[in-house]
């Protein structure tokens, strides 16, 4: 195998088609390839296991930690926001009830005052009406008395002019009876 290998190295493009065969089965190069392969693999392994992989693992772990923390913080903030929302809604509802209560109370107060004023007005109206009626009654009584007086005087005058001596008492009685009759009619 050794001579063939050196032949290959020395004259790859000689006259005509140089038959290199399959360099893969040129066993003379095997020790060389295997040696350099082992060196390469050891170097890669050392770089990976000592430096690259721990570094990448650390970065990934740190990122996972950061993400977990951020998610936890976000959840905390969300919870706080929900609590604030709840408090706000509660305050809003309280304010609504309070407002409704105030409205009701004011309405009742106003109704009360209105009722009071109405009652007072009614009472005054009733008083004035009664007073007026009383005065009307007084006026009517006076009128009635005046009528009786006039009637009596007229009767006396008529009787005297006809030559009769008017008997005061009987005239009074007759006029009263006649007036009462007229009232009844």
């Amino acid at each position: 195998m050794e001579p063939q290998a050196s032949e290959l190295g020395s004259a790859p493009q000689d006259v005509g088609p140089q038959d290199v065969g399959m360099p893969q089965i040129d066993f003379a190069t095997f020790p060389n390839q295997i040696f350099w392969l082992v060196v390469t693999l050891v170097v890669i392994y050392l770089i990976l296991s000592r430096m690259a992989l721990p570094r990448i693992a650390a970065v990934l772990a740190e990122r996972r930690g950061t993400i977990t923390n951020d998610v936890a913080r976000a959840e905390e903030l969300k919870r706080k926001a929900e609590e604030a929302e709840e408090a706000y809604q509660k305050a809003l509802a309280d304010a609504r009830t309070e407002a409704a209560r105030i409205v009701d109370r004011t309405k009742a107060e106003m109704q009360e005052r209105l009722d009071e004023a109405m009652a007072k007005a009614d009472a005054e109206i009733a008083a004035r009406t009664a007073e007026s009626e009383q005065r009307i009654a007084g006026i009517r009584k006076d009128a009635d008395a005046a009528i009786e007086e006039v009637a009596r005087d007229t009767v006396k005058a008529v009787l005297e002019s006809m030559g009769h001596k008017a008997d005061g008492r009987s005239v009074n009685a007759a006029v009263s009876a006649r007036l009462k009759q007229g009232d009844a009619a």
Partner: peptide, 29 residues
């Protein structure tokens, strides 16, 4: 010559490929 690309050659001239010779294998690894 489709197989010429696979030939193991010393990097710095010479014909003999010893186990320790720096070759194109060494370079590409």
């Amino acid at each position: 010559k489709p197989m010429d690309q696979f030939v193991v050659k010393p990097l710095f001239g010479g014909d003999v490929v010893h186990w320790y010779t720096p070759t194109n294998v060494t370079l590409w690894m």
